[in-house]
Simulated assay, not measured.
Amino acid sequence: MWHRGPVDQEGRESVFSATTELDGDHATVRVRGEVDLSTADTMFQAATRADAPRVTLDLREVMFFDSAAIQALIRLADHCPELTVLPSRQVRRVLDISGLGEQPWLATT
């Protein structure tokens, strides 16, 4: 699912996408762009739509992650019994600052 977001400081429109691939009982969700108030719920829905017990949330191409994204991620961790999150450097920093850097679902990179 693609979502065109607001224009950044340099006049470029940010593009968000969240795609889900299902392999048996394992869903892999690849998220790209900015996860914020306008896109966080779409990320959550992409990860829960397949209703798979094992979910890998690949955030390695996420450039911006705000408090709405953190809230969606916490909801997802509560919803998915086996969640693995692959963070980008920016996401890792936000999660570390927010006190979530040691969660068992957060992969070390």
Rank of each mutant, 00 (worst) to 15 (best):
79 H>T: 14
106 L>P: 00
57 L>H: 01
27 A>G: 08
31 V>D: 00
24 G>N: 06
41 D>M: 07
38 S>E: 07
88 S>E: 03
57 L>G: 02
15 V>G: 00
17 S>E: 04
99 G>W: 01
6 P>N: 06
109 T>A: 15
97 I>S: 07
43 M>Q: 09
107 A>M: 05
58 D>Q: 07
60 R>H: 06
74 I>G: 03
96 D>Y: 01
73 L>R: 00
21 E>Q: 14
40 A>I: 10
79 H>V: 05
35 V>C: 08
21 E>H: 15
107 A>T: 00
59 L>G: 04
74 I>F: 05
100 L>H: 11
88 S>P: 00
58 D>N: 13
103 Q>W: 00
31 V>T: 04
23 D>H: 05
108 T>L: 10
94 V>Y: 00
60 R>G: 12
101 G>K: 06
19 T>I: 08
39 T>R: 05
76 L>G: 08
24 G>H: 04
102 E>L: 06
29 V>Y: 02
106 L>M: 09
42 T>G: 10
38 S>L: 11
88 S>I: 01
104 P>T: 10
80 C>P: 02
45 Q>H: 08
39 T>M: 05
44 F>R: 15
1 M>N: 09
56 T>D: 07
87 P>C: 10
69 A>S: 13
86 L>M: 11
43 M>E: 00
31 V>E: 03
19 T>H: 10
28 T>D: 02
1 M>D: 13
23 D>W: 00
3 H>W: 07
93 R>K: 14
33 G>I: 03
44 F>T: 03
90 Q>F: 07
22 L>T: 14
87 P>Q: 08
10 E>Q: 15
48 T>V: 13
29 V>E: 02
15 V>H: 02
5 G>M: 03
29 V>G: 03
85 V>S: 05
6 P>V: 12
70 I>N: 07
24 G>C: 09
66 D>H: 04
96 D>A: 11
106 L>K: 05
72 A>M: 02
37 L>Q: 10
63 M>D: 14
102 E>H: 13
43 M>R: 06
18 A>W: 02
55 V>L: 03
47 A>F: 00
69 A>K: 01
28 T>H: 06
8 D>I: 01
101 G>P: 03
56 T>V: 13
48 T>D: 01
11 G>F: 11
11 G>Q: 12
5 G>E: 02
51 D>T: 10
83 L>T: 10
12 R>F: 08
80 C>T: 13
72 A>S: 15
107 A>Y: 02
46 A>K: 05
61 E>H: 10
93 R>V: 04
22 L>K: 15
91 V>N: 01
71 Q>K: 07
67 S>C: 14
3 H>D: 03
29 V>F: 06
39 T>L: 04
53 P>H: 12
97 I>Q: 04
32 R>A: 11
1 M>V: 09
6 P>T: 10
12 R>A: 14
32 R>G: 06
57 L>C: 08
7 V>T: 15
